[in-house]
Design a protein around this nucleic acid. Structure first.
Lengths: 186, 186
DNA sequence: TCCAATTTGTAGCACTTGCTACATTTTCCT
DNA sequence: AGGAAAATGTAGCAAGTGCTACAAATTGGA
């Protein structure tokens, strides 16, 4: 295996580690153990700890993009209410729940100004917004853009609510969101 | 000054420090400097670093409660749309913006499972939910409860969106939220 | 005034952090 | 086979972490 292949391999293992444990165990030595190499070698494959984390989070973001694409293909357009239902459902789906939990932690870390989280969070958010906006039906361009931002905020908010209260309360909030009506989107 | 008074004084200084710098500079020595005492004395006034942080965050939460009470007194009832407008406005108001930013960081830290943030975040969220619910007009008890959870999620989501994109985008989302219609709340 | 309790400073411990210097082994090309 | 380059292990550094042992100073009550 070349250095690049080992880097890719380590990235995959790190991604799995992050999805399983979140961002609470991300010291260099912990990451190295998760990747199955020595800390010395981890810094041989990656420029720094931040580089390793960015690589792993990037890989996860890429995989998520694929999952989202499969869930709602580009061609399919949904009105806002259904989009809220679909996306808030993703938070609770077993196969994507870990993604969203990690995503929330990443934004959380970004809130504290830590790199590389800030950069990564920004990139993923932009990707999300484009994904939502391109699948919204009805309304004009401006309304879709604003609605996409609104829906992303709702999703993130649901994840946060689940963290600081409980799953049931977040479920109530999600259900209530589905009852909302969106004037301007016939 | 007695030990208790000094503890109270340190709490006030710590609260100011947290509001100004967020949660990124919370090592024992940094907190001690902010409180104007030695780290040795900080641990004399408080049982531990976590105790000091909990005390400061608690004080801030208490102050926020007062501010919210002043903004919308208990007697005044608002329909959901206006409540969303009022609360999302609080995020952008200069005198409460720092509160909400710190609040988001606290939930963020709670997301990583760190104490005392988890406990504090839960307490503040419950307080928030009660505050919103008790000021909602229309609908039945169950709908108000669900709507309060929804609105808290929206507010948190807006704060996160502002962190990982920009202020303008969050503003768009907030404005869009105000256009929503809430069936069941005549 | 004297003694005990409270308060405070000095110094440091044991540990974790990200990262690196250095030496050695392995690989690969000619 | 030989030599350069790549790969890897060993060991450790300097800084920072929360916290504490110990002794000195200060205070307040009798």
């Amino acid at each position: 295996m070349s250095k690049l292949e080992k880097r890719a391999d380590a990235t995959r293992r790190l991604a799995a580690h992050l999805l399983k444990t979140g961002l609470s165990q991300t010291s260099l030595r912990q990451l190295a153990t998760a990747a199955g190499v020595s800390d010395r070698m981890l810094l041989y494959y990656f420029d720094s700890k931040a580089d390793a984390l960015a690589s792993a989070l990037g890989a996860i973001a890429g995989e998520l993009t694929g999952t989202l694409e499969a869930a709602i293909p580009e061609g399919r357009k949904l009105p806002p209410a259904e989009m809220i239902k679909a996306t808030s459902g993703l938070i609770r789906a077993p196969e994507t729940k870990a993604f969203f939990y990690l995503w929330t932690e990443t934004v959380a870390a970004a809130a504290r100004g830590e790199e590389p989280y800030r950069t990564i969070a920004n990139a993923i958010a932009e990707g999300f917004l484009i994904w939502i906006e391109s699948r919204l039906s009805g309304g004009d361009t401006k309304a879709r853009r604003a609605t996409a931002a609104m829906i992303l905020a709702m999703i993130d908010g649901l994840a946060l609510l689940e963290i600081c209260t409980d799953e049931k309360r977040a479920g109530m909030a999600a259900k209530q969101m589905e009852t909302l009506e969106h004037p301007g989107f016939d």
